[in-house]
């Protein structure tokens, strides 16, 4: 069936079964491959996107549930917080294999947008749903603290 979505500020129409997870519509239909597949069961966070500003595991969100809501993927993360995270991620040289990193950043973007100065405990709580097999966690933590500082300095 034809479903109308708003992805990264653009209205798109996709022909998909209503139960299809958002992840596969993004990747297979819209070719937005920055959102990654890791587990298909909301256990690893590689597929994290924003739906109406909330971090959502797109591998388990039926596409029907995204209709009428604003979907943002890594390709559309253009907020000041998103830019601060990119800058911090580059400064800390966070990624190794890189597969999980877009999901990490999408989770971190919600955290930093909600908490101007996230504590280590905030980071633990918000980021423990995102697995990194390369275990870049030390740098993810540093980059989040640093991005929060950048975002504040930049006058959000």
């Amino acid at each position: 069936m034809a479903l109308d979505l708003e992805v990264n500020g653009k209205r798109v129409s996709v022909d998909a079964d209503a139960a299809t997870p958002l992840l596969w519509v993004l990747r297979d239909d819209l070719k937005l491959t920055g959102t990654k597949f890791g587990c298909g069961a909301a256990q690893c966070g590689a597929c994290t996107v924003h739906v109406d500003g909330e971090a959502v595991r797109s591998c388990v969100l039926p596409i029907a549930a995204a209709v009428g809501r604003k979907v943002t993927t890594i390709e559309g993360l253009s907020s000041a917080v998103g830019k601060a995270l990119s800058q911090a991620w580059i400064e800390e040289d966070v990624p190794q294999c890189g597969w999980c990193q877009t999901g990490q950043i999408m989770s971190a973007a919600v955290l930093v947008a909600e908490k101007a100065t996230p504590s280590d405990a905030d980071i633990d709580a918000c980021m423990s749903g995102n697995v990194c097999r390369c275990a870049t966690y030390v740098r993810i933590r540093r980059a989040i603290h640093s991005a929060a500082a950048i975002a504040k300095g930049g006058g959000r």
Partner: peptide, 17 residues
């Protein structure tokens, strides 16, 4: 600095999948 960081965090690095 790694040469692949920017592409990996922007989601533009091409993996097999």
């Amino acid at each position: 600095k790694r040469l692949d960081t920017v592409a990996k965090i922007a989601g533009t690095a091409t993996f097999g999948l």
